[in-house]
């Protein structure tokens, strides 16, 4: 094997390792689908995870969502995305703005019916829907 060929193969090997490393460190898909929104009673939401132009009220809601997730899990999630719903959840006739924080994973506390298939009770993502004004938990989902 010539020296040039060895160098070429080594370069390919290193490149492959880099690709694997990048994939292992890739952030999970935490996007809220239309189905996710529908299932928690919302029609649309805006990803504000990296938005630096939020109003003071919206910024506070995002901060409360992150604080809630930190409290919920005992530490700040490595990955998360925060959404502000563009519609509201009605409560007693008054619309309540909501904020949603989505994090990876989640263990579903059921393992299916008797006589059914076995499956790992793991979710891909978990969302916590909070009152944007007070930070109160309203509902959650895992998929």
């Amino acid at each position: 094997m010539s020296g040039r060929l060895r160098i070429g193969l080594a370069a390919v090997f290193v490149a492959a390792l880099l690709v694997v490393a990048v994939q292992l460190n890739a952030a999970p898909d935490l996007s809220m689908t239309d189905l996710d929104l529908q299932r928690v009673g919302l029609s649309d939401a805006k990803d504000v995870s990296a938005d630096t132009t939020l109003s003071a009220g919206d910024a506070k809601a995002v901060s409360m969502a992150r604080d809630y997730a930190t409290q919920y899990f005992g530490s700040a999630p490595q990955y998360s995305r925060v959404y502000l719903a563009t519609d509201t959840l009605p409560a007693d006739g008054a619309g309540t703005p909501v904020v949603v924080i989505v994090v990876p994973g989640g263990t579903i506390p059921f393992d299916g019916p008797v006589g059914g298939p076995t499956f790992a009770p793991l979710a891909h993502k978990m969302g916590l829907v909070l009152d944007a004004a007070t930070g109160a938990f309203l509902r959650g989902f895992m998929r």
Binding site: F73, G74, G105, T107, P109, G112, P113, G115, G116, P117
Partner: peptide, 22 residues
């Protein structure tokens, strides 16, 4: 359950540790 017990809807109380949390 439906489709020969391969699909289901379940509802009730549970006590657990979601995502290894509280």
């Amino acid at each position: 359950t439906t489709n020969n017990v391969t699909q289901w809807a379940q509802w009730g109380w549970y006590k657990s540790k979601i995502d290894n949390g509280n």
